[in-house]
């Protein structure tokens, strides 16, 4: 009989304690962020969408080899005058439908001090069509004075 009332007391006490916890949080400030109005700044190492710098890229193909999902493709630039390949890209394409945002391409990239392909801090991106996910950077049509291939230009083969 005592146990019966004891159980009732314990049960009601535990339930009231639970209500006290939720009641306390009712008056605490919220921790959420009202997204379109307020935005969090991503940390330094944030892996946002990939950006590509077609000027510094040496078309060394290391990022293509490093990518686990084979979403990067590129074509080195061949000088039409001399028929020689130079350490520049003709075009460079990333299929963002496949991209893993894993940073392996950025780590493989040998350009210094700023990597040619790297993660930006941009995270607001949406596409309506699958074809839009293929982002292509093309070499400017303006002629560039032929510069000598640098360190890794030969690895493309």
């Amino acid at each position: 009989m005592i146990n019966y009332f004891k159980t009732i007391y314990q049960v009601s006490k535990a339930l009231l304690q639970g209500m006290a916890v939720t009641g306390r949080w009712l008056f605490q400030p919220a921790i959420t962020v009202q997204y379109p109005d307020e935005k969090l700044t991503p940390p330094e190492r944030f892996r946002g969408t990939l950006v590509f710098d077609k000027e510094t890229c040496t078309a060394c193909n290391l990022c293509v080899k490093a990518c686990p999902t084979a979403c990067i493709s590129l074509e080195p630039y061949v000088d039409p005058a001399t028929q020689k390949r130079i350490a520049k890209v003709n075009w460079y394409q990333i299929d963002f439908g496949k991209c893993n945002y894993c940073r392996l391409c950025e780590e493989a990239c040998p350009t210094k001090p700023i990597k040619s392909v790297r993660h930006s801090h941009d995270y607001e991106w949406s596409m309506k069509e699958r074809s839009e996910m293929f982002v292509k950077w093309k070499r400017d049509p303006s002629p560039v004075i032929a510069d000598t291939p640098k360190d890794t230009g030969t690895k493309a083969a």
Partner: peptide, 10 residues
């Protein structure tokens, strides 16, 4: 984790 690795889940 995001600060240390750059991603929240993967």
């Amino acid at each position: 984790f995001e600060e240390v690795s750059g991603a929240r889940m993967t």
